[in-house]
Nucleic acid binder design. Structure first.
Length: 277
DNA sequence: GTGGCCCTGTGA
DNA sequence: TCACAGGGCCAC
């Protein structure tokens, strides 16, 4: 479900609950969910101690004393915390049995209705790690104006697909790409090469702003997105264009339009976001 | 670039 | 019953 703000919310929750805990056992119920393969995943993860939880773009990084688990939630992934010994629910595919520093045993289950997500164990000695992240651009929340503008200046093609391209910047998905474009006053079909320097700076500012505000509100709870503690986010109440086609633009009252771009919906205000920048 | 596909569920 | 869903990869 999640884009950067939701992933950040989940990662913060996991950091609180998991840091310092030892993984006593890992069980995999759906083989294709884990990499490199279920056996080596369970073997390598079992017995490790979690030293912290971070994030890069939409990928959660569970840092271990020997390697790390990279997790992509894709559309419907998430972690559920349950009492020790509770059997996995219908869509739970991986079970981690944990022991906190005080000795208390608890469990977290990775749940994923659509089975698109994955958990990838990476060995610290493995050269794959560098390769693994080489495909990701700078984090959309952390990228500075100079770098963003510089990367944008070399690009061609429409703005919306570019914002969704994780090798350009990592972390934006359909919601926040639409919201950032609206805040920047840029049309989703606007060619990247037609932007002025001022337009590029405006887009950078909009991206940073919308993500910061969303993180502050715990992300957007659509289709029951919840954080690691089962709490809902509130940013969905602040959406200006996403999922609001036919409704009035909060900035100008004009009707929000919806087009399909690369197989995905793109919502925008035809007045605030004119076709040419 | 577009369309299909990996899946299941929901709402019209 | 069908369209659609926040991601991303692949073949064309």
């Amino acid at each position: 479900m999640p884009e950067l703000p939701e992933v950040e919310t989940v990662a913060r929750g996991l950091a609180k609950k998991l840091t310092g805990a030892a993984i006593e056992k890992a069980e995999v119920y759906l083989d294709k969910i884990v990499r490199p393969d279920p056996k080596s995943f369970a073997r390598n993860v079992g017995g490790a101690v979690i030293t912290g939880v971070g994030r890069r773009g939409k990928v959660i990084l569970v840092e271990l004393d020997r390697g790390l688990i990279a997790v992509h939630l894709k559309m419907t992934g998430g972690f559920v915390f349950v009492p020790a010994g509770q059997p996995p629910a219908r869509h739970s595919h991986v079970r981690l049995v944990l022991r906190d520093p005080a000795g208390k045993v608890f469990e977290t289950h990775y749940s994923d209705m659509r089975q698109f997500g994955w958990l990838h164990y990476l060995d610290p000695a493995d050269l794959d790690q560098a390769e693994f992240f080489s495909q990701l651009g700078p984090d959309a929340l952390a990228v500075g104006q100079k770098e963003f503008v510089g990367r944008l200046a070399g690009r061609r093609g429409r703005l919306k697909p570019l914002l969704l391209n994780q090798s350009f910047v990592a972390g934006l998905g359909n919601i926040y790409a639409d919201e950032a474009l609206h805040r920047a006053g840029l049309h989703p079909l606007c060619p990247a090469e037609s932007l002025t320097d001022e337009g590029r700076r405006r887009l950078h500012k909009a991206v940073r702003q919308v993500l910061r505000e969303a993180v502050k509100l715990g992300g957007s709870s659509i289709a029951n997105f919840k954080d690691a503690e089962g709490k809902l986010g509130y940013f969905q109440t602040k959406h200006r264009v996403y999922g609001r086609s036919g409704q009035p633009c909060p900035a100008c009252g004009c009707r929000i339009e919806r087009i399909v771009l690369g197989g995905r919906a793109a919502c925008f205000c035809p007045a605030c976001q004119p076709p040419v920048a």
